[in-house]
Amino acid sequence: MKTPLKILTGGLLLMSLSAKAQMPNDAIYMAKGSVCIAGMYGRSTWNEYWEGPLKRHNENIGTLTTQNVMVMPAIGISRRVNLLLSLPYVWTEASAGNLMGQKGIQDLSAWVKIKTVQAGGFSLHTILGGSLPASNYVPDFLPMSIGLRARTATGRLLASYKHPKTGIYLTAYGTYNWRSTIKVDRDAYVANNRLYNTNEVSVPNTYDASVKLGILRRKWQTEIFAERMGGLTGDDIRRNDMPFPTNNMEATSVGWYGKVQPRHIGVNARIGYVLDGRNVGQSTSYTVGLLYQIDFKK
């Protein structure tokens, strides 16, 4: 049983970077002493977005494309405790208009994933994480900015059931994301329909939740998922204004994830599509990754 679980871990880190970045959202663990390193490329595009509740097109943006490459090691500290890290480089581009694309190293994230309960096919997991901006990118030149620069702390509860014989599984989780205030270059801005005479901006805390149904086998995995994310506070993009970090960004998405990893080397892919949202682009995203597992333990 050693191999499949170990090998799978790296691939499951995969998520759309555009929305909530690379957070661990699975019930799978690396064995003690194993490290799975994933190298990934992701691309997300939209040509329509929601300005508050209003869905619209913007001829001065055209299609906005966000791309990223990232390194994501997953480290087996013990059979029940894994440490996961990620560091993406992100760049943006608009197909129309004259807004200059932005690029840079985004946020360094780390999570500890703990299997708290295992009973037959059932398992419960606690995932604690945090992130820090890893470079001094501009957070309020949206939608071109590569991130919001908030420090984050994340708490997630994840429950999973896997049928032992078939490998069919059902996983669900809910997450609370705490986000710090940020500093912007300007020293006044409008949010919540008032003027703030400061460079400090409150970025809303968010939640997310997901349900996933899939099959997990020794050498491959396939899964469909639905996700919901949103702010616990936050305002809307004003009519014909640009987005701002105080916006309540909500999205409901669906997608597919798959992975093949016969031995130490594997590949994975993920596709996501935003069905409905508020203050976000209706993005279609995909990610592909190359996985490599190293066993330090003999």
Binding site: W111, G130, A153, T198, E200, S202
Partner: peptide
Amino acid sequence: MAAVAVATVSCDKSITE
């Protein structure tokens, strides 16, 4: 790194004007 990430997070969300 994980410890740093958690430790640097303070819970104050208020804006100083």
